[in-house]
Design a protein around this nucleic acid. Structure first.
Length: 458
RNA sequence: GCCCUGGUGGUGUAGCUCGGCCUAUCAUACAGGACUGUCACUCCUGUGACUCGGGUUCAAAUCCCGGCCAGGGCGCCA
């Protein structure tokens, strides 16, 4: 008889619990974890998130609930909660999605000085077991495993912090652009021809024609100068079909691009270093929490950044015992030699014209050199730019010299015939910039779903 | 594309040099049990793996060859 009663009671409990399974109902979150304080003692709140870790101690259960902003300890003492709440708490598994209505209790024994005693727990969704990787970081996982299960990897507080910083970086960049008189534009990523030369493009099928994914907004943003926008910027994807296999290359990346009229390369460099400096200053000011989570001590480098001519840089490389001819681009060994002798950000200016694309303006006095620059951080190139060639005839000449066919450039070239102002600009690799800000060795860490030579999923 | 290193439970690893005592180590995870202050809880019991193909050998996780994949380096990357 007693057994029968227990069984019936259990069934009853189970049905009641199932009623609240997966049901959000009219519950809405009242607080994120970081909005709760010990001063809220006795206040009733609703919190929602994931079961980060669970410790069951017989008649006492601790659930660490994790949301976007952090964690909060839920304590479930059998004597202080209903039988149903206690049973639900005992059934919670790691990474289950929970909604908890409960009371804040100030308690020195709790990690944050407060904890929450639940009045009702709703399991909004169960997580399958075992988890394909451990979001609580007890056991490390290879980057390959992590990227395969990225949705779970992204739950880790460190990874969340990194992508929060990425978002804040873009916000800061936009703020500085807007404050400096730039207009944000969007240019096509489906393009008709590969005539720009240089990098390999991804061919795609465009109805009955072949098209390509854009390698750079370069030609379009220059046309915006002919359009009279004066100063434009674009933040968008670029695609490069190079079979590179390194920790600092991606086949799909985000490029922060700008172009400015009635300006030379020195003006462009000033905008670039202002953007970079402001990002560091803004993140330093507003995001210490994220840097703490990542264990990074951010230092803000003052402007102006050091300027080094290409010729000076070659001398430094050679003085370090790395052989390099004037006129060559820097090899990895050369970049590393430069990185050894330079701290933080620096510019390399006055490049040999031959090493730069056709749209770069050669120096009038010494046409062997051109008005191009790279922004480096130690041994990593993060941006390159230049004053552009705004004279139609010189541009056509440049295109021919690079072995390209001017006829393939269509409207781009035409834009130079009907009133193109002198202009300059640059492109900054967002992921490489993030590598520097967050001290990452592998660029894949800075993208939600990286695309590289082998990886096309998830 | 080239060079180096590697691929062992869900995850991360030990074992490989010198083949057999491997019925494969440990941690974590997972399942069950005990526990009212955990915070990497603790304790007990249990589940779960040798990248694929070929070869050498009485015998292969271990040695050889090839494929695939990964990590690192280089090249390529206007």
């Amino acid at each position: 008889m007693l057994i029968l009663i227990i069984i019936i009671k259990n069934i009853h409990l189970k049905i009641k619990k199932d009623d609240n399974m997966y049901v959000l109902g009219d519950w809405r979150r009242t607080h994120f974890s970081n909005e709760i304080t010990p001063e809220m003692n006795d206040e009733e709140i609703i919190i929602m998130g994931w079961a980060h870790s669970i410790r069951k101690l017989g008649k006492l259960v601790f659930i660490i609930l994790r949301d976007r902003e952090g964690t909060v300890q839920i304590v479930v003492p059998k004597q202080k909660v209903s039988e149903e709440v206690f049973a639900t708490a005992k059934s919670v598994g790691r990474e289950d999605v929970l909604a908890i209505k409960g009371k804040v209790v100030a308690n020195e024994k709790a990690p944050a000085g407060y904890e929450v005693i639940p009045i009702e727990i709703r399991i909004l969704n169960k997580a399958d077991t075992p988890l394909p990787l451990d979001p609580s970081e007890k056991v490390p996982a290879d980057i390959d495993t992590r990227l395969d299960k990225r949705f779970l990897d992204l739950r880790r507080p460190k990874i969340q912090a990194l992508f929060r910083l990425r978002s804040e970086m873009f916000k800061s960049v936009r703020d500085t652009f807007y404050d400096s008189g730039f207009i944000e534009v969007n240019t096509p990523k489906l393009v008709a021809s590969a005539t720009e030369g240089g990098t390999e493009l991804f061919p795609i099928s465009y109805f009955e024609r072949e098209a390509f994914l854009g390698q750079s907004p370069q030609l379009y943003k220059q046309m915006m100068m002919a359009a009279g926008f004066d100063r434009v910027f674009e933040i968008g994807p670029i695609f490069r079909a190079e079979e590179h296999n390194t920790r600092r290359h991606l086949n799909e990346a985000i490029s922060i691009d700008c172009e400015m009229s009635f300006s030379d390369e020195k003006d462009a460099m000033k905008v670039l270093e202002k953007i970079v400096h402001n990002v560091f200053a803004d993140l330093y000011e507003n995001n210490q929490k994220e840097f703490q989570t990542l264990g990074i001590n951010l230092t803000v480098q003052e402007t102006p950044f050091p300027r080094l001519t290409y010729t000076e840089a070659v001398d430094i490389v050679n003085s370090k015992g790395i052989e390099m001819e004037w006129g060559e681009d820097f090899s990895r060994a050369a970049e590393k030699a430069l990185g050894d002798s330079m701290e933080g950000f620096y510019f390399i200016t006055d490049w040999p014209t031959e090493t730069r694309p056709f749209y770069t303006l050669p120096n009038q006095k010494d046409p062997k050199l051109c008005k191009a620059f790279d922004l480096m951080y130690k041994d990593l190139e993060i941006s390159s730019g230049a004053q552009r060639n705004h004279k139609y005839d010189l541009l056509v000449e440049g295109i021919k010299r690079m072995g390209l066919n001017p006829e393939g450039f269509g409207t781009y070239l035409e834009a130079f015939k009907y009133g193109m102002p002198p202009h300059a600009g640059w492109g900054l690799g967002a992921e490489r910039f993030m590598m520097i800000i967050t001290c990452q060795e592998n660029i894949r860490e800075c993208v939600l779903f990286p695309r590289d030579r082998q990886r096309l999923t998830p």
